[in-house]
Design a protein around this nucleic acid. Sequence first.
RNA 1: GGCUCCGUAGCUCAGCCGGUUAGAGCGCACCACUCAUAAUGGUGAGGUCGGUGGUUCGAGUCCACCCGGAGCUACCA
Length: 508
Amino acid sequence: MPFYVTTPIYYVNAEPHLGHAYSTIAADILARHMRQRGEDVFFLTGTDEHGEPVAQAAERLGTTPRELADRNSVRFRDLAARVNATNDFFIRTSDPEHVAEVRRIVQGLYDSGHVYAGVYEGWYCDRCADFKTESELVDGKCPIHLITLEKRHEENYFFRLSSFQEALERLYAENRDFVSPGSRFNEALNFIRQGLEDISISRSAISWGVPVPWDERHVIYVWIDALLNYYTALAYAREGEDLTERFWPATVHVIGKDILKFHAVIWPAMLMASGLEVPERLFIHGYLLMDEHKMSKSLGNVIDPFQVMDLYGTDALRFYLFREVGFGQDGNVSTEGFETRYTTELANEYGNLASRTLAMVSRYRDGAVPAGEPPAALVAVFEGAPEAIAACFDRSDISGALEQIWERVRELNRFVAEQAPWQLAKDPAQAERLDSVLYGLVEGLRVVSLLLLPIVPEAAERLLIALGAAHERSLVAARFGAVAGGAQTGELPQLFPKIEREPEPSAA
RNA sequence: GGCUCCGUAGCUCAGCCGGUUAGAGCGCACCACUCAUAAUGGUGAGGUCGGUGGUUCGAGUCCACCCGGAGCUACCA
């Protein structure tokens, strides 16, 4: 089955931060998991580059929008690589292929009567160079500059969003998991039910954008341009091949809650208007908070993902984000929480389990995994595990999958304590039992690591190799007992070494 | 104002279609073990399940109201 997953495309004006890493890692975990299931996967990420803010920033820096976009896009590409994202393509909305396709699609909307010329009327703030909504106004003044605003008119092209009211309501009625979590589904549906207005999809007086094909005085509103990336990329992501047939419609768009409406309302309407299929579902994740507040540079409460990865590794970050905060919810992250999870779970429970298991196999059986009887206790623990985890991933429930996996890790540690192999080793009469215990541990670790592969790919791979499980990486192989004994284990440096961190120099 | 969601052990949260003594993880206390990255395992501490009133043989789990908190209520991306 084709599985097409996307991240939002990131606006090049922003500094790559933890939130970007979060979306990208989430989509990557889903992509890796589906590949493990043998599905035909396409994973897309990229950058959104048009629009006034980029043009303004470029002007401030004395450069061109294109140069600025080139420079900043690389940083997002670097971030994706740094978090070990396995994206199949990195789209930029400035790609000529994308631009051409956006023009073609928008022209189609115009030709089919879904777009018309109209007048946008609103309160315009000169200082912001921007229109304000009624609800934003404070006593009829700009909330930022507190100056009286004038009513301004602008000729725009409008998309008949209002004509998709019923179609959208039907989409939601017939597809209860079009948007998840459920609260976001309700939020989007509620918005639709309130009545949709047409939206303007062009801007004049801006030049950094995709020109409207039939009226080049205008450029296409960046959001229209940006949303289309999910579709346009397929046509040129692979040279000499059009993947559209194969992967459209997208399986899941991973997005943050701040861009819900664009994806849950405007986007499906645009697709319907263009005669294209709508995506199967959207998964909306929450915000990563610090001390209950959204991270922001001005508050100084940011976690730099690069810094974390430099210190603890990429796997640790990938693990932490989905372990600490239920995927789909808002949640607090902190360096303290990070260190606790890293030490207690990755280093102690998983890493140390690997160390003790390998040490015992080496010490008691010269590094050869014994062909023991699968211990009944562990057979029970792993019964149905791959299926349970796959079911979580089918709902994009990464945190749920991780919890399922971690319960097994804990069971393995419990098993070691109960069986006390070091006692069995003292009694030659217990050799068979020791074989069984050691085999069970190796096999349990192998299964757990296979299941963990999408989340902590580097560490899980290293451990699998050390366990002598050289080849098979599919989910099918994650069945307890699928591999018999006989493998030779190898050396394994600590998977997650304890990090000695310099005590914070107390701020004066 | 309207709509949605939430309020369960010190902390973070599970509790599906209502049903035996309300659970997990962290933190804390004590105990056990020594294979291991001084790691692991066990036990305990007893929370009016926000409040009140209902429905029911029986409600954390359904209904009403109240208190407290969060989000959305359209064109910054």
